[in-house]
């Protein structure tokens, strides 16, 4: 045993470090439930900011919902927006500070229900911001109510017998809709349930920030996520449930990768 302990000691040396928490992520213990995807996405954003060296140029806009406290964890300047208004707040920041990096971070209720108008119009204007969209098909903070993205038949505290389309309508594929807008430059859907997915998601977030630097239009990253508490599953089973039920409805991959549309396509003739 002591041989083993010695061998571990041999390995744990600064020169052998291959992964440590980014300094852009602070030491506060996150308030999220065990296994929550928010924590992973926060970390990826922090790592991208760190690797791009833009900590001093980045302003985040946090939503209302579970990630209302995002500002506690990523060590950058933040504004906390009213429910659904993050894209408008981000627009206000970006318009007066066009050379800074501005991103909004929103859940499904914030982005796709109460803030639908702000979301659509920010993307339609082609605001040069990054929008991070956490879709876990449920309201976490308020206790597991139906979200616009809740699946048909999914049980939530306000759909105790499952989401019924006659009563509640359909799961909103807002990312597909946003990809149609000429202001969108980069629209992608990612997930963070396993190491490969996490690495892909990080690349997507990095790319979104790079698109912002090029002022090509809005960069939109959906992350299909879990909510163990809301789904009443443990974190590992939540990932399985997500793969089986969420991915068919919300397929992963890039939905758009170009640049804001050419204005001439839309110009009047006369």
């Amino acid at each position: 045993m002591s041989v083993l302990a010695d061998r571990i000691k041999e390995i744990i040396k600064p020169e052998n470090l291959v992964y440590a928490k980014s300094p852009v992520l602070n030491d506060d213990i996150m308030h999220y439930c065990p296994g929550c995807s928010h924590g992973v996405v926060h970390r990826l954003i922090a790592e991208v900011i760190d690797e791009m060296g833009i900590q001093d140029q980045t302003i985040g806009v946090s939503p209302v919902g579970c990630s209302v406290f995002a500002y506690k964890y990523i060590d950058i300047d933040w504004q906390e927006a009213a429910h659904g208004r993050a894209p408008a707040v981000a627009t206000g920041i970006k318009r007066v500070l066009p050379d800074k990096y501005v991103f909004s971070y929103q859940g499904d209720g914030d982005l796709a229900a109460i803030g639908t108008a702000e979301t659509f119009h920010a993307v339609n204007r082609g605001e040069n911001i990054v929008m991070i969209f956490i879709n876990n098909a449920i309201y976490g903070m308020t206790g597991g109510q139906m979200a616009p993205t809740t699946l048909v038949g999914q049980i939530t505290s306000t759909t105790p017998y499952g989401r019924n389309v006659d009563l509640n309508g359909y799961p909103l594929k807002i990312t597909e809709l946003l990809a149609q807008l000429p202001g969108a430059a980069y629209v992608t859907r990612q997930s963070v349930q396993n190491p490969a997915a996490v690495r892909k998601a990080k690349k997507a977030i990095r790319k979104a920030f790079e698109v912002q630097a090029l002022k090509k239009g809005t960069a939109f990253v959906e992350v299909v996520s879990t909510c163990s508490s809301g789904w009443k599953l443990n974190p590992v089973d939540s990932n399985k449930w997500m793969e089986e039920n969420m991915f068919p409805q919300y397929p992963l991959g890039d939905l758009k990768d170009s640049s804001r549309a050419d204005a001439d396509l839309y110009r009047i003739k006369g």
Partner: peptide
């Protein structure tokens, strides 16, 4: 089972609480 570890960073990649630090060495 520390003797199994290859320092692949899969654990730190999925950790929502960023509480894992990973080291790797050629022995």
């Amino acid at each position: 089972n520390p003797e199994n570890c290859t320092g692949c960073t899969n654990c730190s990649a999925v950790c929502p609480d960023s509480c894992i630090t990973v080291y790797r060495a050629k022995i």
